[in-house]
Structures are given as C-alpha cells and as structure tokens.
Write a protein that binds this DNA or RNA. Structure first.
Length: 333
DNA sequence: AAATTGGACAACCGCATTTGA
DNA sequence: CTCAAATGCGGTTGTCCAATT
C-alpha cells in the first residue's frame, strides 16, 4: 500500500501554469504569505492546483528574488566544487548561490555544466598522460613506479572512469536522505574500487574527526607508532602539500577550518585557477600524483568531508534558510 | 519545407524527513 | 510515543523551440 496522494490528481489542473494562475498565486502570497500550509493555499487562492504544485511554482519561478540563466564563471566553479564535495545535494548547492533554486541548478548542471566539466577533465587527463609519459621513461622509483604502472593509459585513470570529478560523493550514497538511483551511471561503488582495508584503518581516526563522528578535542590517545606512520603516509598523500607533523597529532585534522580547505576556491581565491581546473585543489594535484593510496584517500575525503562542510555551513551561514542536512550530518553520528 | 534531433527548462513523481496532534 | 499529514528533496519526464539534416 502506497501512501495516499496529496491531492486528487484527477480534479486539479496539471501541466504548465498560465499567466493568470501565476498572478493569482503571486498576489495571494504577496497579500497573505504562504500561511505555512501549501495544501490549503490553492483553495484559498482560488487555484485549482495541487498544493505541491503551487509550492514548486512559487519557489522555482515566482519568487521575486529568482535569477534565471546567465550563470557566471564563479557560479560554475562553485557548483562544480560543491558537486565534487557533496554530490547532488542541489538544495545545499543552490543555497550557496543567491537567487538560484535547486531545480535551476540541477537543470543547469545536467544540461550544460556537466558536459563542460567532463570536457575539462578529459583535457586534464591528456595533460596527465603527457606528464606520465615524460616521467615514466626515467625508470621505476619504488612504490611510485609501481603505482604508475597500474595507471596506464589503457587502464584509464579513475578520473576518466567517471570523469572523476563528476562523481557524486559517496556521502550521497551513504546518506539516509538519498535515494540511490540505479540509473546513476556515476555510482560511486560501481566506478571506484573500495579503498583498501589498510587505508581505511589508517585514515579512519583522522577522517572521523572531520566528520564530527569523533570528538576533536580532547585528542585521541596517540596511536601506535606503526599506525601513526600509516596515518602520516595517508595524510601526506591526501594533502596536495606535505602534511605537517602536527597533522598526525590531530591538530591538522581537527583544527583546520573549512575555509582553509574549501572556501578560498569557493570565493574565487587566486589560488583557484580561474576558468581552468574546476575542482581546485581537489583533483588536479592528485592527477599528477600517481599514488594509488592518494586515490583511496581522496575517496575517503569525498565521503567524509561533506558532513563537516555541511555542518559548518549550517553553523556559519546565517543568511541561508537551509537547515543542516540532517541525513547528511546525522546519519553517521 | 518538412522531419528529426537535441538543448533547455518547467513540472511532476515518489520517497524521506519533519512536524504536530 | 505513535501516526498521519505536511513539507522538502532529488530524480525523472514532458514540452517547447531552435538547429540541423
């Protein structure tokens, strides 16, 4: 038994809205507000529409502060970067773009930006191949050499397998909010092999602090030396820059503000290549680091960062009318 | 000129979550 | 605490229109 429909679909009008209906809804909301009850609104406003339809029409089209089209380069970068970080959480992404709606951003991504980003990734791959060919001729260099051999042009880099950065973060897959779609060609599990157990074990304590699933202070007891070394190795490979020694003690992971990780590129910081690498520090450095473990850590970071990001956004951004994404933030806590 | 194709976007659908009685 | 209703969200579909064949 499915749940009862919100309205009698046979008795309400469906399909495109007429200008008259728009005006009725607009004037009603202008005079009375939504009243917090979309189900009752159509009747009061004299509209023969489903309440959900009215809500959608208002939120996506009639609201006075809506912008349509004309996405800027900066907005493109924000969308790509956020999609890379949190996946298809369109409402969250849209909340970072004043005047944009989740539906608008979603449509824009699906019709334009995704292709643009894929093309960008393919260009990066070519650069990667070029770079790899230049360096692989110099002979093996231990583990690096071995990892590089595994990433041959025939065995395409992960980025190509799903235009990597187009890959919604697994947070969406693990989130209780998300309904995984079988048609999602970029399903994380399908596209990426799971991180190795060793990598998971080594990185878990650090990443857990990002996620908030483990308390930051007080710091956990120092791990055994071997585990410390594994964490150091993992973090060093995860971070584009060599991780400072303090990272291993916990201050790096627990104390690093989100802004340091993410907002600079969100805000178009000069570090972020304008119009170039869509994904800032997220992928380009990794493409040039043929280390298998870094890819695993990247997967993990993609899985864990979103929670930290979402919570920090919710806490920091008082202008956004978006509640902390409960499923995202709490499903792992 | 007609048919086809593909892009863009509005709207719908179904499910998860939240809310309140 | 429970349950039904309301709301929010993301995926998908439908429709319009311009470009191409």
């Amino acid at each position: 038994m499915g749940r009862a429909p919100c309205c009698d679909k046979t008795s309400v009008k469906r399909g495109p809205w007429s200008p008259e209906e728009d005006e009725l809804l607009r004037s009603y909301v202008h005079n009375h507000g939504t009243g917090g009850n979309w189900i009752a609104l159509p009747h009061k406003a004299g509209l023969n529409r489903c309440g959900k339809s009215c809500r959608l029409r208002w939120l996506n089209y009639l609201r006075p502060d809506i912008k349509h089209g004309g996405y800027t380069e900066q907005e493109d970068r924000i969308i790509c970067s956020l999609y890379n970080s949190i996946g298809s959480r369109w409402s969250i992404i849209a909340s970072k773009l004043p005047g944009r709606t989740d539906n608008d951003v979603k449509n824009y991504w699906n019709t334009k930006l995704k292709k643009k980003a894929i093309a960008n990734m393919q260009q990066q791959q070519e650069e990667y191949y070029h770079h790899h060919q230049q360096h692989s001729s110099g002979g093996g260099r231990g583990r690096r050499g071995g990892a590089a051999a595994a990433v041959t042009p025939r065995a395409a880099p992960r980025s190509q397998q799903c235009a990597s950065s187009m890959q919604p973060s697994p947070a969406s897959a693990s989130s209780a909010v998300t309904t995984a779609s079988a048609s999602d060609a970029c399903s994380f599990g399908a596209m990426y092999p799971s991180p190795s157990t060793t990598t998971l074990q080594a990185a878990a304590p650090v990443l857990a602090r990002y996620d908030g699933t483990a308390p930051a202070p007080p710091l956990p007891p120092p791990p055994p030396q071997q585990q410390q070394q594994q964490q150091a190795s993992a973090l060093a490979e995860f971070s584009p820059a060599p991780a400072p020694a303090t990272a291993i003690s916990g201050t790096w992971a627990a104390g690093l503000p989100l802004d340091d990780m993410f907002l600079p590129e969100l805000l178009g910081d000069s570090e972020f290549p304008p119009g170039g690498d869509f994904f800032g520090t997220g992928f380009a450095p990794l493409l040039l680091q043929d280390r298998a473990a870094s890819a695993s850590l990247q997967e993990l970071s993609a899985c864990y960062f979103p929670n930290a990001q979402a919570e920090m956004w919710a806490a920091a951004d008082h202008h956004v009318h978006v509640k902390p994404p409960a499923g995202l933030c709490h499903s792992l806590t």
